[in-house]
Design a protein around this nucleic acid. Sequence first.
DNA 1: CTTTTTGTTGATTGACGAGTCAATAAACTT
DNA 2: AAGTTTATTGACTCGTCAATCAACAAAAAG
Lengths: 194, 194
Amino acid sequence: MPKLGMEPIRKAALVKATIVEIGRAGSLDVTVSQIAKRAGMSAALAHHYFGSKEDIFLAAMRHILAIYGAEVRGALAAVDGPKPRLQAIIRASFSAGNFRKETVSAWLNFYVLAQTVPEARRLLRLYQRRLQSNLVHCLRPLVGAHAGRVASGIGALIDGVYLREALKGEAPDSASAVATVLDFVAAELKEKTA
Amino acid sequence: MPKLGMEPIRKAALVKATIVEIGRAGSLDVTVSQIAKRAGMSAALAHHYFGSKEDIFLAAMRHILAIYGAEVRGALAAVDGPKPRLQAIIRASFSAGNFRKETVSAWLNFYVLAQTVPEARRLLRLYQRRLQSNLVHCLRPLVGAHAGRVASGIGALIDGVYLREALKGEAPDSASAVATVLDFVAAELKEKTA
DNA sequence: CTTTTTGTTGATTGACGAGTCAATAAACTT
DNA sequence: AAGTTTATTGACTCGTCAATCAACAAAAAG
């Protein structure tokens, strides 16, 4: 009983299922059958909508990135002024959702993918550029010409703190992650404006 | 013509070959046959010396960690005083060898492994604790009670900068990576000692 | 010199998995 | 109503790969 217009629904279900399965496996060692099953369809249908497994992974990566982007935009819309905006970006980067094991696994594996799959690398760079540009925008009024350099530092620190917190073993602590980055920001602001 | 005492030689060759193959593939999607072939032996022999593929990966991880540890120790032995020691650690973390594609791939994939393989997680934590302890040792005389917190920041920043530099696409720039971290250190020192 | 230990591999097993295809069925078009 | 497009799947192909085993070779031990 084929209803029409299934494509977007099926694709969305597959993307969601892919992320769950990557979380379960902790790696990209996930079969199309597993994904399809979790999404409630046959493996053949998954191949029908996405051409290949790699395409499925890339769609999942886009989805993760889109969610993160939306989270940041949402947080930014709610506040005003350079410093609060900076805090909003940082908090969004360490939101509870980002520490769910599926999300962590997705990010780690996307780093791995970015080494060899050009489209994955492109997407990762897109994320990095957007973060950089958001940060620079907040930092310009605070540290002027230093904005670029400081933003690079904050961006890298966010990634590094995330990595450590995610792999810590115990339940990750968003608050302390945010605090670590804010501590850095405070130090830089004091120095670059002195 | 079986010479005796082959075990350590074979194992070392396999570990080396494993790292090369991981670099080539960019992932852990590497067959035991590929590894064994590159190491100049049959796949069966690889299974004979290491019980399983996972054991081979863990041995490779230990090797990478050991090299990094040795690099840091070597750099530390050559200098004296807190600040130079700090610089030595940071420089060692961004040495050219660490940006070889095999090494990058190994690290990224070890992060992935650390999610699910207990021994991998253990090794990663060992690395993090050692770095932390090295940093705290340098920082104590500089920032006293803040040493722990500052060390966490530096450690995370090192990982984050490494990640970004490694995945940048263009040839990674050790000097600017070091500079980014040192910039952070300078800011923190100024603040925490003021 | 024969028994045990160590080194070594080709062949095999047993399982799994990506991607294709042919076939079925319902909807939409003309 | 005939033809086309979209949805859907079971079965199949073709390949791969981790791990095991039986067998052979050489050195050391007794």
